[in-house]
């Protein structure tokens, strides 16, 4: 587990010491939410209805935009190369980095989401399921986003390219995540989508680090 712990600790420390950069996803989350409110209007009928979907989409964007610099700095200062040269399993190192990244991007968004839900007049009964689905779904977003970030590492123009690569793969997470919230609104059972989200999480934890590792090796090879 050495590699996992080292990468996790290091990335978390770097994130905490660089406060502004760490605060960006959270600031983005709140700002983008209020943009939706301005655009849709504060109509008391439509806002609660669109609220779960809006929170989910904004959380997805926040996750996507923050994965962009997941490997950037490490690529530039050479520490990425050192991680790849390490003889210990790359799988665990990548997983440690991703977990650290999720702790400063997905986790705060999930924790903040009840506040955000109140902020845009979401019905109270969806708050539990909203936090639950975000806790299950944002790690998947980080894992999938990591693949895109690894593929574009060192290209210097991630941005929209990353969005094109990653967003198609985000769609199932979004469907099941916001779908579960709407099921609660409609008084239906949420077992189905929640199980699907859990399956996506299990699948991406086991497979995505391999793809990320391979993509990272490719980014350094040439």
């Amino acid at each position: 587990m050495g590699n996992f712990g080292v990468q996790f600790r290091r990335d978390l420390l770097v994130a905490i010491r660089g406060r502004t950069e760490t605060a960006n996803p959270i600031a983005f989350f709140v700002l983008a939410l209020s943009l939706f409110v301005f655009a849709v209007g504060t109509d008391s009928e439509t806002l609660p209805r669109v609220a779960p979907g809006v929170v989910w989409v904004v959380a997805l964007f926040a996750a996507m935009l923050s994965t962009e610099n997941l490997f950037h700095r490490d690529h530039d200062d050479g520490s990425l190369e050192l991680m790849l040269l390490d003889s210990r399993p790359l799988f665990l190192g990548v997983l440690g980095k991703l977990l650290a990244h999720w702790c400063v991007s997905g986790l705060p968004v999930a924790i903040l989401s009840p506040l955000a839900a109140v902020f845009i007049n979401a019905p109270f009964e969806i708050i539990t399921i909203l936090v639950g689905t975000l806790l299950l779904g944002t790690p998947v977003l980080t894992l999938i986003g990591g693949i895109g970030a690894a593929l574009t590492a060192g290209l210097g123009r991630g941005g929209l390219l990353l969005a094109v690569l990653v967003m198609p793969l985000y769609i199932p997470v979004l469907i099941f995540g916001s779908g579960a919230c709407y099921r609660v609104l409609d008084g239906a059972t949420v077992t189905g989508p929640v199980l699907w989200l859990t399956a996506l999480l299990a699948g991406s934890i086991t497979l995505a680090p391999f793809a990320i590792g391979a993509a990272l090796r490719g980014s350094q090879e040439y």
């Binding site: 693949i147 593929l151 574009t152 290209l155 123009r157 390219l161 094109v164 690569l165 198609p168 793969l169 699948g203 793809a211 391979a214 993509a215 490719g218 980014s219 090879e221 040439y222």
Partner: peptide, 29 residues
Amino acid sequence: GLIALRQAIPRLDRAAYSVAILALVGVVN
């Protein structure tokens, strides 16, 4: 995505490798 990633990476061999990984990842669909 396959087309865009290839165009974004200037080096032919690196583009080939990255596109191959992306193609493999997308097969879940």
